[in-house]
Amino acid sequence: MSGNRIAKLSLQLMTIIEERSVNNLSAIPKEEYLYKCTSACAGCSSSLCLRYVLKAAGPDSVLVVPACCTSVIQGMYPGTAMNVPVYNIAFAAAAACASGMSDAFATLGRETNVIVYAGDGGTVDIGIQALSGAFERGTNFLYICYDNEAYGNTGMQRSGSTPLGARTTTTPGGKPTAKKDLDRIVEAHNPPYMATACSAYPLDLYKKVKKALSIEGPKFIHILAPCPPGWRYPTEKTVEMGKLAVKTAQWILYEREFGKLTINGPSKAAMKKPAPLEDYIKSQGRFKNLSPEIFDLMRQQVEQNIQRLSREEAGVC
């Protein structure tokens, strides 16, 4: 077994121990790698997620960021709101750039975490080719997609990840097609670790990042990140919106380690007895005037997801 491998395994062990101990938010490290001077919108949940991602990753980490809101929230040169190196790269290129960086660090014998922090557009649309390539090659990195379900940086146009019926500036009558199922695309690459997360559950996110970084190979975390201007809800409702997404089972928290699926805490209950989907839909301006037909389709989709994941967890195919 190579030295690297041993180091990774012992890290994994440490993570497991630490995971047991980190069961409340106060146990999360106090060090900040994302300072309070970001230029994010008030109530931005994706920058909140980034804060926890970096706390979990620690200082020996590089963020690779394609064009997205995160390009802006870092602040304007020469200032920066970040306390780890951030490598900004063209919109389509994050995963490929991370491949090169990860191999460079391997060549140099460095253990530095290479983490892509990309939006949904940069992941499911323009960046999907690079993403697929890196996962197929087995690049050792963590790819995080924070999903605000539209192109936030350019003012909320549709993305492939925008849900059915949602109004964006390029779908003023509501999006006529369904949200692209990114997780099943990634799953088809059989990565050693993939998970979903949500900004309203930072501890869950923290643990998932820790675990992902303890595993060698391409890892993937898909975070639902509610966005007040895009989803059109009051800024102070940002955490509530994430909770609603999970409680209605519109968004399901799970992880899949070496192919084995585990549904996580809050989603277990939600999948058995989901809160009414209306609670989620009605609280967001982007779903204004949603037709009953579209709403039914959305409800069916939630039901299908619950069944598919329940069957998979139970080992029924």
Binding site: D125, I128, G155, Q157, G160, T169, T171, P172
Partner: peptide, 30 residues
């Protein structure tokens, strides 16, 4: 979409949605 062109795309999407323009608008991925 891309800044600072986005308004063109958005305005055209509006025209198409409102029926003011009968073009087919393809919302491509890149």
């Amino acid at each position: 979409p891309i800044t600072p062109q986005t308004e063109i795309v958005e305005q055209i999407a509006d025209y198409v949605t409102d029926g003011d323009l009968e073009s087919r608008y393809i919302p491509v991925e890149s």
